[in-house]
Design a protein around this nucleic acid. Structure first.
Length: 221
DNA sequence: AAAACGGGCAACCGCCCCAAA
DNA sequence: GTTTGGGGCGGTTGCCCGTTT
Protein backbone atom coordinates (compact mmCIF):
# COMPACT_ATOMS: atom_id res chain seq x y z
CA UNK A 1 0.00 0.00 0.00
CA UNK A 2 2.30 2.69 1.24
CA UNK A 3 5.05 3.20 -1.25
CA UNK A 4 8.08 5.37 -1.60
CA UNK A 5 9.16 6.77 -4.93
CA UNK A 6 12.44 8.40 -5.76
CA UNK A 7 13.07 11.32 -8.04
CA UNK A 8 16.36 11.86 -9.88
CA UNK A 9 17.42 14.08 -6.99
CA UNK A 10 17.00 11.04 -4.73
CA UNK A 11 14.26 12.75 -2.76
CA UNK A 12 11.99 10.16 -1.26
CA UNK A 13 8.30 10.95 -1.71
CA UNK A 14 5.87 8.97 0.34
CA UNK A 15 2.49 8.03 -1.07
CA UNK A 16 -0.57 6.34 0.30
CA UNK A 17 -2.39 6.81 3.59
CA UNK A 18 -1.07 9.33 6.06
CA UNK A 19 0.25 8.07 9.37
CA UNK A 20 -0.61 9.63 12.72
CA UNK A 21 2.97 10.91 13.02
CA UNK A 22 2.72 12.69 9.69
CA UNK A 23 -0.61 14.20 10.67
CA UNK A 24 0.85 15.50 13.92
CA UNK A 25 3.88 16.96 12.17
CA UNK A 26 1.66 18.78 9.70
CA UNK A 27 -0.77 20.04 12.34
CA UNK A 28 2.02 21.27 14.60
CA UNK A 29 3.89 22.91 11.77
CA UNK A 30 0.83 24.81 10.55
CA UNK A 31 -0.04 25.76 14.13
CA UNK A 32 3.42 27.29 14.50
CA UNK A 33 3.97 28.77 11.04
CA UNK A 34 0.58 28.92 9.38
CA UNK A 35 -0.23 27.82 5.86
CA UNK A 36 2.42 28.94 3.45
CA UNK A 37 3.80 27.72 0.15
CA UNK A 38 2.91 24.05 0.37
CA UNK A 39 6.04 22.65 -1.27
CA UNK A 40 8.24 24.69 1.06
CA UNK A 41 6.05 23.75 3.99
CA UNK A 42 6.41 20.04 3.21
CA UNK A 43 10.20 20.32 3.12
CA UNK A 44 10.50 22.59 6.15
CA UNK A 45 8.26 20.35 8.21
CA UNK A 46 10.37 17.36 7.27
CA UNK A 47 7.49 15.55 5.59
CA UNK A 48 8.40 13.28 2.72
CA UNK A 49 5.25 14.31 0.92
CA UNK A 50 4.50 16.59 -1.99
CA UNK A 51 3.12 20.02 -1.26
CA UNK A 52 -0.08 19.03 -2.97
CA UNK A 53 -0.46 16.00 -0.77
CA UNK A 54 0.04 18.13 2.36
CA UNK A 55 -2.47 20.69 1.16
CA UNK A 56 -5.05 18.04 0.40
CA UNK A 57 -4.55 16.32 3.73
CA UNK A 58 -4.89 19.60 5.60
CA UNK A 59 -7.91 20.90 3.71
CA UNK A 60 -9.87 17.67 3.55
CA UNK A 61 -9.05 16.11 6.88
CA UNK A 62 -6.90 17.93 9.39
CA UNK A 63 -8.32 21.44 9.31
CA UNK A 64 -10.01 22.16 12.67
CA UNK A 65 -13.24 23.39 11.09
CA UNK A 66 -13.79 20.30 8.98
CA UNK A 67 -17.16 18.79 9.86
CA UNK A 68 -17.29 15.05 10.02
CA UNK A 69 -20.33 12.85 10.11
CA UNK A 70 -23.44 12.31 8.07
CA UNK A 71 -24.75 14.84 5.60
CA UNK A 72 -27.98 16.27 6.97
CA UNK A 73 -31.23 16.48 5.03
CA UNK A 74 -30.82 20.25 4.76
CA UNK A 75 -27.31 19.83 3.40
CA UNK A 76 -28.54 17.17 1.03
CA UNK A 77 -31.22 19.44 -0.40
CA UNK A 78 -28.75 22.30 -0.64
CA UNK A 79 -26.28 20.12 -2.51
CA UNK A 80 -28.99 19.09 -4.98
CA UNK A 81 -30.11 22.67 -5.47
CA UNK A 82 -26.59 24.00 -5.95
CA UNK A 83 -25.64 21.13 -8.23
CA UNK A 84 -28.68 21.90 -10.35
CA UNK A 85 -27.40 25.47 -10.58
CA UNK A 86 -23.70 24.89 -11.12
CA UNK A 87 -23.15 21.27 -12.05
CA UNK A 88 -19.97 19.58 -10.82
CA UNK A 89 -18.46 22.73 -9.34
CA UNK A 90 -17.75 20.97 -6.06
CA UNK A 91 -15.55 23.61 -4.51
CA UNK A 92 -18.15 26.26 -5.29
CA UNK A 93 -20.86 24.12 -3.75
CA UNK A 94 -18.66 23.36 -0.73
CA UNK A 95 -18.32 27.10 0.00
CA UNK A 96 -22.04 27.10 0.80
CA UNK A 97 -21.78 24.17 3.21
CA UNK A 98 -19.59 25.28 6.13
CA UNK A 99 -17.20 22.60 7.28
CA UNK A 100 -17.81 20.35 4.30
CA UNK A 101 -15.06 19.79 1.75
CA UNK A 102 -15.42 19.61 -2.00
CA UNK A 103 -14.05 16.07 -1.88
CA UNK A 104 -16.67 15.01 0.64
CA UNK A 105 -19.51 16.53 -1.36
CA UNK A 106 -18.19 15.01 -4.56
CA UNK A 107 -18.01 11.56 -2.95
CA UNK A 108 -21.43 12.00 -1.44
CA UNK A 109 -22.90 12.95 -4.77
CA UNK A 110 -21.36 10.04 -6.58
CA UNK A 111 -22.17 7.39 -3.98
CA UNK A 112 -25.57 8.50 -2.73
CA UNK A 113 -27.33 10.85 -5.08
CA UNK A 114 -26.22 9.31 -8.36
CA UNK A 115 -27.20 5.92 -7.02
CA UNK A 116 -30.61 7.24 -6.02
CA UNK A 117 -31.09 8.80 -9.43
CA UNK A 118 -30.33 5.51 -11.10
CA UNK A 119 -33.00 3.93 -8.91
CA UNK A 120 -35.42 6.71 -9.80
CA UNK A 121 -34.69 6.29 -13.49
CA UNK A 122 -35.27 2.56 -13.38
CA UNK A 123 -38.47 3.24 -11.45
CA UNK A 124 -39.73 5.45 -14.26
CA UNK A 125 -38.65 3.01 -16.88
CA UNK A 126 -40.72 0.38 -15.13
CA UNK A 127 -43.79 2.50 -14.39
CA UNK A 128 -44.05 4.87 -17.33
CA UNK A 129 -42.19 3.89 -20.42
CA UNK A 130 -41.92 6.84 -22.76
CA UNK A 131 -41.92 9.51 -20.09
CA UNK A 132 -38.41 8.82 -18.86
CA UNK A 133 -36.75 10.11 -21.95
CA UNK A 134 -38.61 13.39 -21.66
CA UNK A 135 -37.75 13.65 -17.98
CA UNK A 136 -34.10 13.52 -18.83
CA UNK A 137 -34.02 15.89 -21.74
CA UNK A 138 -33.66 19.35 -20.36
CA UNK A 139 -31.32 22.13 -21.39
CA UNK A 140 -27.78 21.67 -20.10
CA UNK A 141 -27.35 25.34 -19.30
CA UNK A 142 -29.67 24.82 -16.37
CA UNK A 143 -26.83 23.04 -14.66
CA UNK A 144 -23.59 23.93 -16.36
CA UNK A 145 -24.05 26.84 -18.69
CA UNK A 146 -23.65 24.74 -21.80
CA UNK A 147 -24.76 25.35 -25.32
CA UNK A 148 -28.48 26.15 -25.25
CA UNK A 149 -28.97 24.56 -28.64
CA UNK A 150 -27.88 21.16 -27.38
CA UNK A 151 -29.97 18.81 -25.33
CA UNK A 152 -28.16 16.48 -23.01
CA UNK A 153 -28.82 14.05 -20.20
CA UNK A 154 -29.68 15.46 -16.83
CA UNK A 155 -31.05 13.42 -13.99
CA UNK A 156 -34.55 14.07 -12.66
CA UNK A 157 -34.76 16.39 -9.68
CA UNK A 158 -37.22 16.00 -6.85
CA UNK A 159 -36.78 19.48 -5.52
CA UNK A 160 -38.99 20.91 -8.19
CA UNK A 161 -39.42 24.35 -6.69
CA UNK A 162 -35.74 25.18 -6.47
CA UNK A 163 -34.84 23.46 -9.63
CA UNK A 164 -37.67 25.02 -11.59
CA UNK A 165 -36.50 28.42 -10.34
CA UNK A 166 -32.97 27.84 -11.55
CA UNK A 167 -34.24 26.41 -14.76
CA UNK A 168 -36.52 29.35 -15.37
CA UNK A 169 -33.62 31.68 -14.63
CA UNK A 170 -31.50 29.78 -17.09
CA UNK A 171 -34.21 30.10 -19.73
CA UNK A 172 -34.45 33.84 -19.14
CA UNK A 173 -30.69 34.29 -19.20
CA UNK A 174 -30.44 32.19 -22.27
CA UNK A 175 -33.19 34.06 -24.07
CA UNK A 176 -31.65 37.44 -23.28
CA UNK A 177 -28.23 36.16 -24.31
CA UNK A 178 -29.69 35.00 -27.57
CA UNK A 179 -31.35 38.39 -28.00
CA UNK A 180 -27.99 40.07 -27.70
CA UNK A 181 -26.40 37.95 -30.35
CA UNK A 182 -29.19 37.59 -32.84
CA UNK A 183 -28.93 39.88 -35.79
CA UNK A 184 -32.19 39.23 -37.54
CA UNK A 185 -35.83 39.08 -36.54
CA UNK A 186 -36.07 35.56 -37.94
CA UNK A 187 -33.30 34.36 -35.71
CA UNK A 188 -34.85 36.05 -32.69
CA UNK A 189 -38.23 34.47 -33.35
CA UNK A 190 -36.61 31.06 -33.74
CA UNK A 191 -34.79 31.45 -30.46
CA UNK A 192 -37.91 32.56 -28.61
CA UNK A 193 -39.81 29.62 -29.99
CA UNK A 194 -37.01 27.36 -28.83
CA UNK A 195 -37.11 28.84 -25.34
CA UNK A 196 -40.89 28.54 -25.35
CA UNK A 197 -40.52 24.90 -26.26
CA UNK A 198 -38.21 24.33 -23.35
CA UNK A 199 -40.61 26.10 -21.01
CA UNK A 200 -43.56 24.01 -22.18
CA UNK A 201 -41.52 20.88 -21.79
CA UNK A 202 -40.52 21.93 -18.30
CA UNK A 203 -44.14 22.60 -17.32
CA UNK A 204 -44.92 19.08 -18.45
CA UNK A 205 -42.04 17.72 -16.38
CA UNK A 206 -43.22 19.60 -13.27
CA UNK A 207 -46.78 18.38 -13.69
CA UNK A 208 -45.60 14.85 -14.23
CA UNK A 209 -43.26 14.92 -11.26
CA UNK A 210 -45.93 16.30 -8.93
CA UNK A 211 -48.30 13.62 -10.09
CA UNK A 212 -45.76 10.94 -9.18
CA UNK A 213 -44.22 12.71 -6.15
CA UNK A 214 -45.63 10.26 -3.63
CA UNK A 215 -44.09 7.38 -5.51
CA UNK A 216 -40.80 9.25 -5.80
CA UNK A 217 -40.41 10.05 -2.12
CA UNK A 218 -41.28 6.50 -1.18
CA UNK A 219 -38.03 5.38 -2.78
CA UNK A 220 -35.27 4.84 -0.25
CA UNK A 221 -32.10 6.91 -0.40
C1' DA B 1 -16.45 -20.21 7.50
C1' DA B 2 -14.86 -18.33 3.53
C1' DA B 3 -15.15 -16.24 -0.85
C1' DA B 4 -17.31 -12.74 -3.66
C1' DC B 5 -19.28 -8.47 -4.02
C1' DG B 6 -20.25 -3.67 -3.46
C1' DG B 7 -20.22 0.84 -1.05
C1' DG B 8 -17.68 4.51 1.05
C1' DC B 9 -13.99 7.40 1.10
C1' DA B 10 -9.08 9.00 1.30
C1' DA B 11 -5.68 9.96 -1.78
C1' DC B 12 -3.66 10.56 -6.26
C1' DC B 13 -3.52 12.26 -11.10
C1' DG B 14 -3.67 15.41 -14.66
C1' DC B 15 -5.19 19.56 -16.37
C1' DC B 16 -5.88 24.45 -16.03
C1' DC B 17 -5.22 29.12 -14.30
C1' DC B 18 -2.58 32.74 -12.55
C1' DA B 19 1.08 35.41 -10.82
C1' DA B 20 5.90 36.26 -10.53
C1' DA B 21 10.33 36.30 -12.70
C1' DG C 1 5.64 38.05 -24.48
C1' DT C 2 7.33 33.74 -22.53
C1' DT C 3 8.47 30.58 -18.98
C1' DT C 4 7.89 28.45 -14.66
C1' DG C 5 6.14 27.08 -10.31
C1' DG C 6 2.31 26.89 -7.07
C1' DG C 7 -2.35 26.28 -6.18
C1' DG C 8 -7.07 24.87 -7.31
C1' DC C 9 -10.18 21.78 -9.21
C1' DG C 10 -12.68 17.75 -11.14
C1' DG C 11 -12.09 12.99 -12.30
C1' DT C 12 -10.41 8.58 -11.08
C1' DT C 13 -8.26 4.92 -8.47
C1' DG C 14 -7.64 1.62 -5.03
C1' DC C 15 -8.04 0.12 -0.33
C1' DC C 16 -10.88 -1.05 3.60
C1' DC C 17 -14.73 -3.01 5.52
C1' DG C 18 -19.39 -4.58 5.90
C1' DT C 19 -22.77 -7.53 3.61
C1' DT C 20 -24.29 -11.25 0.91
C1' DT C 21 -24.01 -15.78 -1.04
Amino acid sequence: MEKISSSPQDVEIRKGPWTMEEDLILINYIADHGEGVWNTLAKSAGLKRTGKSCRLRWLNYLRPDVRRGNITTEEQLLIMELHAKWGNRWSKIAKHLPGRTDNEIKNYWRTKIQKHMKQTNSFYEQTSSGHTSQMNMIPPQACNGGNPMELSYYPPCENTTNFSTSFATAINENTSRLNDTSTTMVNQCSMHLLALGYTSMWLFVVAFTQQHFAALVSLRW
